Amino acid sequence: MLFITLIVASFVFLHQSTAQTDCSLEEKDLIFIIDDSGSISASDFLLVKEFVLNVTETFTISNVTVNVAVITFATFATVEFYLDDYSDDKAALTAAVMAIVQSNGATFTDEALALARTDVLDPARGDRATADNVVILITDDISNDPERTRNESDMLRQFAEIFAVAIAVDDESEINYVGDDPDGEYVFSLSSYSELPGIVDDVGLVTCKSLNGFNHGVLDLP
């Protein structure tokens, strides 16, 4: 596992990317951490799922390029699917994302960050030693346990670039802490869910190119 670079039976409009970036040969393990707490309406949660699919459209999904995992969180965090579940089947990946059911509840962001570190980023779950790992957090609220959220982001950051999308968050100090620095490149601040389509190209671009160019290392799980 490499350093983490720390976001159907339905008619889904997939954004056609105009970003002038060729990610077709990029090898990434892409992990979306999605807030599905009770503060999000059903229609806005659908926009989040479409955003996830639109970002994946900027990459080539295959065993040798980009793999995708999704974690949702509210009162509890859940792995919706692992990196190797749909590594060679983009249609099945699309169906799996659209099938995610919102759980509602509180906002324990720390649980999701911990789950990414200890469960998803595991070679037995599809984490590849040759791939960069990209984590995109999407949330509309501060966490119920701010101290633990900061601690978990620090532990993830030992091996990670973390990107964050904050939607109508009144106090962004926590999300700015979770996302890497500088905030202007790692944190996307939106006023509503309807603005998500407008950042698809930018999110795809920064996660494709890996801003800091780290020398990657193997994650030593506790």
Rank of each mutant, 00 (worst) to 15 (best):
L2T: 10
F3T: 12
F3I: 12
V8K: 12
A9Y: 12
S10Q: 11
F11G: 04
V12S: 03
L14I: 13
H15C: 08
H15A: 02
Q16N: 15
S17C: 10
S17H: 07
T18E: 10
A19W: 01
A19E: 15
D22A: 04
C23N: 13
L25E: 13
E27L: 06
I31N: 03
I34P: 01
G38Q: 08
S41T: 15
S41C: 00
A42C: 00
S43Q: 14
S43K: 09
F45W: 08
V48D: 03
K49P: 00
E50I: 12
V52W: 05
V52C: 08
V55C: 06
T60K: 13
T60N: 11
N63Q: 14
N63S: 12
T65E: 11
V70G: 01
T72S: 14
F73M: 08
F73T: 00
A77G: 04
V79G: 03
V79C: 05
V79Y: 09
D85W: 07
Y86K: 09
S87E: 10
D88S: 14
D89T: 09
A91T: 14
A96D: 03
A96C: 12
M98P: 01
A99W: 04
I100A: 04
V101Q: 14
Q102R: 15
G105I: 10
T107P: 08
T107M: 07
T107L: 09
D110P: 00
A112M: 02
A114P: 01
A116K: 02
D119I: 11
D122H: 09
D122E: 09
D132M: 09
D132H: 11
V134D: 00
V134S: 04
V135I: 15
V135K: 06
I136H: 02
I136C: 14
I138K: 04
D141Y: 02
I142S: 10
I142P: 05
D145H: 10
E147A: 13
R148T: 15
R148C: 00
T149P: 04
R150Q: 15
M155T: 12
L156P: 06
Q158S: 11
A160E: 03
E161C: 06
A166S: 12
I167V: 15
I167Q: 00
I167W: 03
A168P: 01
D170N: 07
I175E: 05
Y177S: 07
G179Q: 04
D181K: 14
P182F: 05
P182S: 11
E185H: 10
Y186F: 15
V187P: 07
F188N: 04
S189Y: 11
L190M: 04
S192M: 07
P197E: 07
P197T: 07
D201H: 02
D201P: 10
V203S: 09
V203E: 03
G204I: 03
L205M: 06
C208Q: 08
C208T: 03
K209W: 05
S210C: 06
F214C: 05
L219V: 10
D220P: 05
L221S: 13
P222M: 10
